[in-house]
Design a protein around this nucleic acid. Structure first.
Lengths: 407, 407
DNA sequence: GATATTTGTAAAGAAACTTGACAAAATGCA
DNA sequence: TGCATTTTGTCAAGTTTCTTTACAAATATC
């Protein structure tokens, strides 16, 4: 497809509609060879061949084995070329920056981290730029010239800034601007939880599904809604903020000033508070030891104890699941997703939580919608937030790779 | 754009990507003249001119006045041509079929209705086919060869059937198949409430917004989620069924078998039940007269009485709004829409309901999301459901018109 | 009234896609 | 085994779509 000179990118290789479609079809495994691509996209085999050649030249695709299926000459299996291009993503989490380097298929090749020295957005940004500069030095291939960055708080993805992060007390942190100035490379910013959801949708359990809901549980709770691989941002970038839906108008006071938010029942913070309260009532639990060590109990401790069978911890999880299950039930009824993925530092733990949630959701969701949904634990590991950042870069691999090669 | 012969539509006129884009740009008023279209779509003025000529030839666009803005030669204002093509939509509602004829801009030119004689899906379908056959005879222009049909219940839009309509006790009603056989014309089927939401999004208060939520309140409650003009169907076509989200696990029993559904608090049925209960307690109200007439009070009666200032009716509305407002607050927090449109037979009445809901929603929604949303009453009138059907036809005006003209 | 600016169209050329043909590589059947 | 059948991938030639360049028409500004 040709473009007007006023807005055109002048490259040796076309970035047309069909080129994107070919890449997507291969990514989603809906087509495997040139001929099946042609059938799937309604293009001639010839054109498909030309497009594929271009993508192979750009090292975005590679030919693999032969496809022996049915009779006739076997096709050549095509897949993303994982040998050349690299994406770098970052995520800020509990005082540190985590970095990942991935190939085009989203496989993590290398990780890194850097603890932020100091407080406030300046130290936060400074450490990010330093960490990225260091991390990109050791990239094992050709770097796609952009960084994807997962950060806490409400993010304006268009302008690349944190509108506000209430936990940290920050407002209007210009992340993209800072990184782009320091590193002379494009920076794409996303809420870290939404990024994790995107990563799960693309590379985790969400592969091949149309509508997924990712629910990230850590100290807080938030969600990501993904329709056909695209994140729903909302009109002011707050779609998915389920932590502050009201479960009970007369419930306990939440930090946000309202009462009975999901946050006060089912977040890691809530689990920890509940456990501490029960312990101070004198109930028996393996968590006592931890308490004696003067380090406060957190949500992860509770989940791990529950996994080990601790009765007090199980009680806390059950209580959290009662409200979380109801919230998920209502989301399933409202939104009718294919899949609900439970992740985040707490949600990823192989604890009884997901079983409780599933049972509760089944009880309250509309049966038709519940029958269509699978509720699963997140498939990806710890670096999923930074991987979410890398997703943003990988989404643009075609244009990024073209820019590099046209130089 | 050329298509492979295997899947191609052989027409005199191209239905390419850009042609669709030109139509959409004009519909959404993002561009007005050939030159502004060219800039907006990144095309040359020449190509844009060619595409526009084709659309004018097909009577989809027309030239209107000159655009005198700034200096230079004035452009020619383009708009949808409302003089030739007609779309027909239908909706089933309380025992009758309603029909509308619209022009390309969604203006209603003519309405009609037909009462269904008999019960059950056979009479329902028979009457639909009869009514459409009669209604299309008097179309005032050229008919786009498809019918858009809004029906109650859970609808499989791909296959054009009612999966189930619990209120009526029906299952697997093959609407498209029947209509297409009887009328030799394509039939597009949608849930009537979702259709109404689509109509409001396209032609009502939702014009120009990105994410809208339409909430239809009649005897039941359901919603439609529309992102960038496209309806979210969900994985099994039940996205938007908010009538059966659980507001209170210990609430009153709902017809669906669960407790405390939104339906039992805020539907028209619920309002009527509440009013009847208060009356039987001996409370004073203008609704008494109605009751004496041995015709049961319904939700509309309550809303109309409330509008007139009746205290008992106002109490019922306030009670309904308390739960509805909370539900909407949570939807706003979760989904962060630009606009929430309250419609349906009950929601469309200019009663105090919307004021109550707004107040309640403000109280419980996350402030950031609430600040970004407008809560409004539906702008379109009674025939909105059938207009929703017509929307489905108008969405395909390009290909439908091409098919007709290529004959 | 002259100049600058913008619009819409025409003719020629470039780019993208298709058609038809053919060699290559497999299967299926005699 | 051999031969017909099927399917893939590519080449050359042709068609369609879009762009570039050029120009007349219609307005605002000075």
């Amino acid at each position: 497809m040709k473009k007007n000179a006023e807005t055109a990118n002048v490259h040796s290789f076309s970035e047309g509609e069909y080129t994107t479609a070919v890449l997507k079809a291969i990514e989603n495994s809906v087509a495997k060879s040139r001929a099946s691509l042609a059938r799937h996209l309604g293009l001639s085999r010839t054109t498909t061949s030309t497009i594929v050649s271009g993508l192979i030249n750009l090292n975005l695709l590679e030919e693999k084995s032969l496809l022996r299926e049915g009779r006739g000459r076997p096709g050549i299996l095509l897949d993303l070329d994982s040998s050349i291009w690299r994406a770098v993503g970052a995520e800020y989490h509990s005082g540190s920056w985590a970095f990942v380097e991935t190939d085009l298929r989203g496989s993590i090749l290398r990780t890194g981290s850097l603890k932020v020295a100091g407080r406030g957005p300046d130290a936060f940004l400074d450490c990010l730029a330093q960490g990225l500069a260091e991390f990109r030095r050791n990239v094992s291939g050709e770097l796609l010239p952009a960084f994807g960055i997962g950060v806490p708080g409400l993010v304006d993805c268009d302008r690349g800034l944190i509108i506000r992060a209430d936990d940290l007390g920050w407002r209007n942190v210009l992340v993209s601007e800072y990184v782009e100035k320091k590193l002379k490379s494009k920076a794409l910013v996303i809420n870290r939880n939404r990024g994790a959801g995107l990563a799960e949708a693309r590379f985790g359990g969400g592969r091949g599904t149309h509508q997924i809901v990712y629910i990230g549980i850590g100290t807080g709770i938030s969600a990501a809604f993904i329709v056909d691989g695209e994140l729903i941002h909302g009109s002011s970038f707050s779609a998915g903020e389920i932590g502050h839906i009201t479960m009970d108008k007369a419930g306990p006071l939440c930090a946000c000033g309202k009462r009975g938010c999901l946050h006060v029942y089912s977040s890691g913070t809530a689990m920890a508070r509940m456990a501490a309260a029960l312990l101070s009532e004198g109930k028996e639990s393996g968590l006592k030891n931890k308490k004696n060590q003067r380090e406060p109990i957190d949500g992860e401790d509770v989940c791990l104890a529950a996994r080990a069978g601790d009765r007090l911890a199980l009680e806390c999880l059950g209580e959290a699941a009662r409200q979380l299950g109801l919230a998920i039930a209502n989301i399933i009824t409202i939104y009718n997703p294919d899949k609900v993925i439970i992740g985040g530092p707490i949600g990823s733990i192989d604890s009884p939580l997901i079983g409780y949630v599933r049972k509760e959701a089944e009880r309250w969701a509309m049966p038709h919608a519940f029958d269509a949904v699978k509720i699963e634990r997140a498939a990806l590991g710890e670096s999923v937030g930074a991987l979410g950042g890398a997703c943003l870069v990988l989404d643009r691999k075609l244009s990024l790779a073209s820019v590099v090669r046209s130089k």
